[in-house]
Structure formats: C-alpha cells, structure tokens
Nucleic acid binder design. Structure first.
Length: 251
DNA sequence: AATACACCCAACCGCTGCTGG
DNA sequence: CCCAGCAGCGGTTGGGTGTAT
C-alpha cells in the first residue's frame, strides 16, 4: 500500500494558465532541452514529458489553432494514404500543426466518417442530415482504409473510386510533393509507388513512373486517355529518385 | 430542466530509438 | 557491448462540452 520511495508524484491533468506562463517564460529564457531539468528548475511540479508535450503542442510559437482548412484536410487525407499513421511526418507538412492535432483530427473528423452516422441525427431516415460533409471526402477515407486487394475485378494495385480514378502521370506539383515526402520517410520504393498512385488517385501504381512497365502483360489493358507518351519525360525525375529495380513494382 | 449520450481534444502511457558514459 | 537517461512517436484515455430526448 505505502510508497517505499515516497517520491513526490508529478502533477497531472489539465494545465492552468499560470503554469503555461511559467513554462513559457522558462523556455523563452533558457531554451528547450532536458525536460526533466526544465520541470525541476521552472518550479513546475510536472513531469518532464508533460512539460515537453505542453510546449510542443500548445505553447510553442507559431502554433496554428482552430479548424483545419479544406486544403489542410485534403493534405492530411493524401498524406495518410501515403504514409499511414505517421502523424509527425504528416504534421511536418502542415505548418503550425502538431502531430497530436493531426492525429486527433484524423480520428475524429476523418476516420470516423467511414463509420456512417455515429452521431444521432434529427431525422434518422434522412441520411443527409448527419452532416453535409462531402461524400467525396468520405469516399476517400473509406478507400484509404481498405486493403489493396479489395478491388478484385481489375488489375490496379490500389483501388480508387472509379469516377475519380485518373490515368496518365503525376503533374509537376504532385511529383514535387511526392519527392519531398519520400525523402522524409523511409518507405520502401515498392510500397511508395503504390501509395503514390493512390495518393493522387491514379489508377495504376506504375502510372507515376516510366514506360518499360507498360510492357508488362499484367498491365496490358492500360490506356492513355489523357496524356500522350511525351509526358514520360515529365516523370523522369521521379523515376530517377526511385531507381530502376523492377522488383519495386512487384513484377 | 434534467438526463443520457456522443463528441472532441488535451494529456497520459508505453514503447522504441538514440546517445553518452 | 551494455546500460541508463532522454526524446519522440503513436495509441489510448478521460474529462469537459455539446446535443438529443
């Protein structure tokens, strides 16, 4: 029953404004680092971890608060398709947003949409009253949760809702984004290829790379309906980044 | 107005990886 | 190498708040 060490238990629970002020002042004076020391020297009776979290997620300068914009939401969805639950990585691409915030946002606003109508509605017969959250987003989220094999009636590596599926290749902005994120992550090339295609709603993983793949029999049903072959050149940078190992395409 | 239920999000927990002795 | 201490990460929890009945 009794505590042998009788160590003072660190304070827990919600932070009070005065505690925030103490921590903020301390960090601004002494800088970050060694959070165990911070908690002791600042006089806060909090654990080092708690101090670090409070600073990182709430007090740090340039923290953006308030609802996510449509652009941010889109980016989160795309990045989640690409990276999975790598919240810190995703947050790294959203200036002013923290991993915790992105994770919470995903779990509440985005992930939950895949389970239709959890919250009670005014009219249970009217599915639309739940929320005018766009069905497009819902579809994206649902798609992202499905394993790759959920599309069995066609060849694509990842299934995307047919009406949204694109063929052809990533545009320059898409390629730039993909490259940047790839550099930050340690995802294997093959996984990357598949997710990259899914991320931008391309029907085939190989859409984002080079021409030799098109010769593979598995992909013989591929049709360019949007872009001519000359666009291969646009893909060159991305292709180079991934290397040329055919293994990576699961062939 | 009271109650129950659902939602949101800050904070905590436990694990992993890194670093220095 | 091994170990301890720390930072960082993702998963989970629980209390406050909003909404429906």
């Amino acid at each position: 029953m009794e505590n042998k060490e009788m160590k003072p238990q660190p304070k827990r629970g919600l932070w009070k404004p005065e505690e925030d002020l103490i921590l903020k002042n301390y960090i601004e004076t002494h800088g970050e680092g060694n959070w165990a020391t911070v908690s002791k020297r600042s006089g806060l009776m909090r654990g080092g971890k708690s101090c670090r979290l409070r600073w990182k997620n709430y007090l740090r300068p340039n923290i953006k608060r308030g609802g996510m914009s449509k652009e941010e939401e889109d980016l989160i969805i795309r990045m989640h398709k690409l990276l999975g639950n790598r919240w810190s990585l995703i947050a790294g691409r959203l200036p002013g947003r923290t991993d915790n915030e992105v994770k919470n946002y995903w779990n509440t606003h985005l992930n939950k949409k895949s389970v239709l109508g959890k919250r009670k509605t005014i009219d249970s017969n009217n599915q639309h009253s739940d929320n005018e959250l766009d069905k497009e987003t819902l579809q994206q989220v649902q798609d992202s949760k499905k394993p790759s094999q959920f599309v069995h009636n066609s060849q694509p590596v990842f299934g995307i809702s047919p009406e949204k599926t694109k063929t052809g290749r990533l545009d320059l902005d898409e390629k730039k984004e993909m490259q940047e994120v790839k550099e930050e992550s340690s995802i294997t090339d093959s996984t990357w290829m598949e997710r990259a295609a899914q991320c931008f709603n391309y029907e085939y993983a190989y859409d984002i790379v080079e021409t030799p793949l098109m010769m593979h029999p598995n992909y013989s049903n591929f049709v360019f309906d949007e872009e001519p072959f000359t666009s291969y050149l646009d893909s060159f940078v991305l292709f180079e980044a991934f290397g040329t190992d055919s293994d990576q395409f699961g062939i």
